[in-house]
Design a protein around this nucleic acid. Structure first.
Lengths: 150, 150
DNA sequence: TGAACTTCGATGACGTGTCAACTATTCCGG
DNA sequence: CCGGAATAGTTGACACGTCATCGAAGTTCA
């Protein structure tokens, strides 16, 4: 007995899917064109600057909520472009640190303002305060359910 | 002069990003595990069943809001798995039709109920009617701005 | 008619994400 | 101290998405 979505839910769900896809695509394209960074690069660099630029790989994966293999692959690509370096970890020889390079720092500092501006333009400049709070509430609720679902 | 996000906006934005990433990942994994279909396969199959199972490629791309090359690549993969077929187009010899195979129809019919159930469980069962309407409203607003931004 | 232009769709190259398997190290019970 | 389990991180194979480009077919207009 499938409980299909009713009309109101369907409107919300289809709208959400479309918004999500379009927003993602626009922001990604713009970031890439403006700064040569991908969305993923951006997230990694933000997480690194948040954390004093020297973090264990798994801690970073945790912060980003990424799978470790994804992060590992991505770090390799970023390293090849000079955005981050890897450092050996003395405490635990299995482990590794990720370090922001000066070039990585420069990249994120250059990219951030235009990115925020794009987020504002596409999303927040069109929403009133109630909508912003509603969005935050919805996100919290859904994240709670996801966590609960294991 | 960058207008950074204020606290309320930041809470909404970070929440949205996290929700989006988690929701996407969960639904995708579940769909894949239950039915062997990817999220993208699912979207294509839904669009095909919506449209009587025989559609021009560009019309399908339009409906999905996908780039034509993405669709072309994806159709090749789906064709290899027997979910769709391509047919020549008599009217316009450049063109091609996409056709749902019986196996494709079976796949979508089998996958849909569990997928809706997952959407319900992770999202709608936790939201009240006001939140559902708020989400629809937000999506409409943002999609409007995206369209306006060209 | 035919030359320039546009449109349909496919393709190759490349960056990205996932899964499963692997290596090297550390931890822990006996 | 030893041997098995757990942990940190990497790797390879493969599916996916984007961009630039291409060939074939249609359109336009002198």
């Amino acid at each position: 007995m499938t409980r299909w979505l009713d009309e109101r839910e369907q409107r919300a769900w289809r709208g959400y899917l479309a918004m999500q896809a379009q927003l993602q695509a626009r922001l990604h394209r713009r970031l890439q064109a403006d700064s040569g960074l991908s969305y993923a690069d951006f997230d990694v660099l933000v997480a690194l600057t948040d954390r004093d630029e020297r973090v264990r790989v798994l801690e970073l994966a945790e912060a980003l909520q990424w799978e470790k293999s994804r992060l590992s692959h991505h770090l390799s690509r970023m390293q090849k472009r000079g955005l981050v370096e890897r450092e050996e970890c003395a405490d635990d020889a299995r482990g590794a640190f990720v370090v922001l390079t000066p070039e990585g720092r420069r990249a994120i500092e250059e990219a951030a303002p235009a990115h925020v501006e794009a987020v504002r333009e596409l999303m927040f400049d069109g929403l009133d305060a109630d909508q912003v709070d509603a969005l935050a509430g919805i996100a919290e609720t859904v994240l709670g359910r996801i966590r609960a679902a294991g």
